[in-house]
Each structure stands twice: as structure tokens, then as C-alpha cells.
Simulated scan of single mutants.
Amino acid sequence: MELNVSTASQGGHAVVTANGELDLYTAPRLQAALAALLRDQVDRIVVDLSGVEFCDSTGMNVLLAAMKRVKERGGVFELAAPRPAVRRILQVTGLDTVFSVTAAVPALDAG
């Protein structure tokens, strides 16, 4: 299964949308998108997980590393709309208390 990653950004805020399976083989694609946003000094990153059907430990590590880098410089990193399978992984690992998880994907500010 593939992983498609797209990014929309506006005024220092970005939404990264991932669709497919996030695993050892596809995680570098998400990592590259997040690294580009970090280089661009984006201060709020929301990762839309509504299209992610599976996420393994490699995928979680990519998300954790990006969150750490964003928070180190005072930014905000959120996971949005995880499917039940991904939400279960977050709960079982305790990462639901580490990540900021929202039920819906916030819209980019219109201003």
C-alpha cells in the first residue's frame, strides 16, 4: 500500500494530509514533508490522519520526532481525525497523552 502526502500552508500554519499506510517503507515520505515545513519555520503543524489506515512504530517515531522539533521552538503540533485503528495504537502506547489529538481537521485561517 502506498502513502500519499500533501501539504497546504498559510501564514505559518500547515496541514499535512496523509492517505494510505504509514509504515517502515512509507514513513520517509511523511518525514520529508514534515522536515520541509520545519525548514520553512512553520509554527503550527496539523497532521490529518483521517486517510491513514495503518501506522506502525516507524510512523509513530516520525510523528514524535517532528512534534519534538516543533515544540522545541514553541510551536504547536497536532494530530487530527485519526481512524479507530490509529487511535487504538495511540491509546495502547500511551501516545494519546503525548500528542495533541483533535477529532476534526481545523481549517487554515482565512486571514
Rank of each mutant, 00 (worst) to 15 (best):
D48N: 14
S6M: 09
G51M: 04
G51Q: 10
H13T: 15
T102R: 04
D23F: 09
I45T: 02
V86W: 13
A104D: 15
A110Y: 00
V42P: 07
P84N: 08
V42H: 11
A8Y: 00
I45C: 03
I89T: 13
L90A: 06
E21F: 00
Q41G: 01
L95N: 01
Q91S: 14
V42Y: 06
A110R: 11
L108N: 14
A110C: 00
S57N: 05
A110L: 03
M60E: 01
R29N: 11
K68W: 01
S50V: 04
S6D: 12
A8L: 12
V5M: 09
V98M: 10
E72M: 10
N19R: 14
M1T: 07
V47H: 05
F54C: 06
E21N: 10
S50C: 08
L34D: 06
T17I: 04
A104M: 08
F77R: 08
M1Q: 10
V47S: 05
R87S: 14
L22W: 06
G12I: 09
C55D: 03
V70W: 01
G12V: 14
V86I: 14
T26R: 07
F99H: 10
S57T: 11
L22T: 04
L64M: 08
A85M: 14
P84Y: 08
G111N: 11
F54D: 08
G12W: 15
L79Q: 07
K71E: 14
G20S: 10
G111D: 15
L30P: 00
L90Y: 03
E78M: 13
C55F: 04
D109A: 15
L3T: 04
A107V: 02
A8M: 09
L3K: 04
G11R: 12
V70Q: 10
L49Y: 12
G111F: 05
F99V: 06
D109P: 00
F54E: 05
L63G: 01
P82R: 15
E21K: 07
D40G: 11
D23E: 09
T102K: 05
V47D: 09
T58N: 05
V42M: 06
C55W: 00
R69C: 02
